[in-house]
Design a protein around this nucleic acid. Structure first.
Lengths: 220, 220
DNA sequence: CCGAGGGTCGTACTTAAGTATTCGGTTGCG
DNA sequence: CGCAACCGAATACTTAAGTACGACCCTCGG
């Protein structure tokens, strides 16, 4: 039996969902809330397996409530069910730790399926949301290559040189680098100079950009 | 009727899929290929609605074939079906333009459903893949904030100053910027100097880093 | 109308960055 | 062993970056 906590400020929506989920024998709505602020107490009281959460609510909204929830150990899974699917909403919800993101126009049967999937620990996203995520990662095209190339280039440097390069990448001046790495100023200059010739760059800004590229985009 | 082209170097896998999809009355396998190189010709000849594509193949592999395909107008949708789901595989496939990415251990019924979904234009991802995508975008946590903060700071600058800042962000020297923006060197220096004081920075490298932060992470 | 802010440029100066060359010590390799 | 690399450092120099002031023009809002 999947124990569900329903969180939506609209009583009509809650009624609709109750009706919709009533047909599923393995799903039970154990409590309801109209505000994210009530969620922690209800979760503590009823220990639901899953929280069906709206995003837009007065007071504590969905993502905020989700974040608070998921910070706890063995928190229930959160399935966000909403009318709004702007980039901001999607991102906030997923970052808050939601395992699913469905639009309210999803067919009832699919919502039931999604609840089972999320309760089982698998993620579920509406097609629109999936498409955006794909576009987002695919939009990074070349990013990975850039990062790989940058890393390969930095690999050409000696250990100490890479340290200096990283410091340059943090926006440090030669003098600061000298202090940080316990070196004399001329030494730092020598390193920077050799980094520039080795990597065929013109100035420290380009070192900084290269270092940044190298540290970006780890892979999916 | 969904017309499918089957692409997999393993004849046994193709036989298995043929059997698996035989039960679906609305799905028809119109052709098969064992190599990505054959795909363009077969697509041209049979005009399938969907290509069920393996990733690892001798010669032209799945992502390469997908990329070639999707470059054409009204190309068929591509559903990648594979045993391997490393980050690299997933990314390459999605970037190549695949609309779906399923693992071969997906239950037959779900594969059939996925084919219908993808043929209808909606994306489909295996839970593992979905989870990675979520982790990836969620992993950017704070990135957005950094980007937003960076953009807000750049917004403090006048239009011309921002242009100079962007040039600095490209690793340009003052002299180069002067040439690019048709300015005198002193003017560029004046701009850079005012950017530094306004944004409370110490040197041009930090301007570059700020510009980079600002241009990162557009939003889903 | 006049001041504020943007944009441009100039001169003059200080400081930081980058180059060149040389040196000494260490470690690893053929 | 001898050579090559890495690491640290020095001196001396050139060039770029950054600061400080002053000046001019333009536009826009009080």
């Amino acid at each position: 039996m999947i124990r569900v906590l329903l969180v939506d400020d609209d009583a009509i929506v809650r009624a609709g969902l109750r009706l919709m989920l009533g047909g599923a024998p393995d799903i039970e709505i154990v409590a309801e809330a109209a505000d994210g602020a009530e969620v922690p107490a209800l979760v503590a009281a009823y220990g639901p397996d899953l929280v069906l959460m709206d995003i837009r609510m007065p007071g504590v909204d969905g993502p905020a409530a989700t974040k608070a929830l998921r910070a706890q150990p063995d928190a229930p899974e959160v399935l966000v069910l909403t009318t709004f699917h702007t980039d901001e909403h999607v991102l906030r919800a997923l970052r808050a730790g939601a395992a699913g993101f469905l639009l309210k126009d999803t067919p009832p049967q699919d919502i039931v399926t999604a609840i089972r999937t999320v309760a089982a620990g698998d993620p579920v996203l509406s097609p629109v949301v999936t498409r955006r995520l794909i576009v987002r990662v695919a939009g990074d095209s070349g990013q990975d290559d850039r990062a790989a190339v940058a890393r390969a280039r930095l690999a050409l440097l000696a250990e100490r040189e890479r340290e200096v390069a990283r410091a340059v990448g943090r926006g440090r001046s030669n003098a600061e680098i000298a202090r940080e790495l316990h070196l004399a100023l001329p030494t730092v200059k020598a390193h920077v100079s050799r980094i520039l010739t080795r990597l065929d760059l013109n100035n420290r800004v380009q070192i900084a950009l290269l270092v940044h590229d190298a540290s970006a985009a780890e892979d999916v």
